[in-house]
Amino acid sequence: MNPVIELAGLSVRFGQRDILKNLNCKLGGKTIGLLGPNGAGKSTLINTLLGFYEPVAGTARIFGNDIRRQANAIRQVVGYMPENDALIANMNAVSYVRMMAEISGLPAEAALERAHESLFYVGLGEARYRMLGSYSLGMKQMAKLAQAIVHGPRLLILDEPTNGLDPAARLRMIKMISEMRDSGEMHIVLCSHLLRDVEETCQEVIILKQGEMVHYSNLEEERKANKRFVEVETVGNDGGFAEAVEALGAECAPAGAGRWKMVFPEGVEMRALYRIAAERDLQLRRLNYRRDSLEDIFLKAMESDRIDRMKAAGAMHKNGHGKA
């Protein structure tokens, strides 16, 4: 699979501050989550990919186009929804979205048609002739999304798209992102500090901290891999049940009141568990595949990075380099 985004030693510096440090990865998922605490460099990475900032070292490629040399080719296929307000207050939504479509290269008539479609799609159909300055925060977010998709981009970059949305509007936004992903016509980069939004929509996640990539996770694969970890609830006489399960090569631990936690090795099918229960006339009331939530992954990444730094600091101290 050709990567959608490829970071090759990408570094960005503002003055004396290193904002992004030697980022390397290849991302090819339909939806890519960009996570990290405030100041981690998420927005800087997006802005660098869009060519707003010049890297001091390395480069990045989007659909194989280099951000240094082929910025126009990249911008032709990218839609961008910024985090901050970026609307012209004294324009109505149709004119605004249409103008953006025309700047992207759509002919005037097609731009008008697409502007109407996009505004209906994001749920602003009835309000499309209102001045943007009169929109609520949630409506402004939707208008920003409409201008980002109006020209039919192949890659949509969303910077904190659910900011300021009420729960219903947030759900609508997440549903739209999922729909666009499933349409098969575009890839999506979602930058958010809301783990739930990323977890619900993304297949791949990179976690940034202080300008460094501290974790890459293919959520799809992790979800599949972690299907071997199950939680089971039984009713009946469970004597010998744990031993029988362990005889399959699985690990089994009681969790109290007929509940069990099990980790199955590769090659063992879940059918074997049903068979053991049936042989003992044991009812299986509940069987959950458990997986690490994105929050677990995020916290682990933050924690492991902290431990790595402490170890490094300790090593420097031992060597006598850490003294101020």
């Binding site: 060519g51 080719a73 910024p82 307000d85 970026a86 609307l87 012209i88 953006m100 992207s104």
Partner: peptide
């Protein structure tokens, strides 16, 4: 001035428009 005051410039420059 309105484009700058409203922070609209990123929307122009994220397109093939310099």
């Amino acid at each position: 001035a309105p484009d700058l005051a409203n922070g609209a410039l990123p929307l122009y420059f994220c397109r093939p428009f310099n």
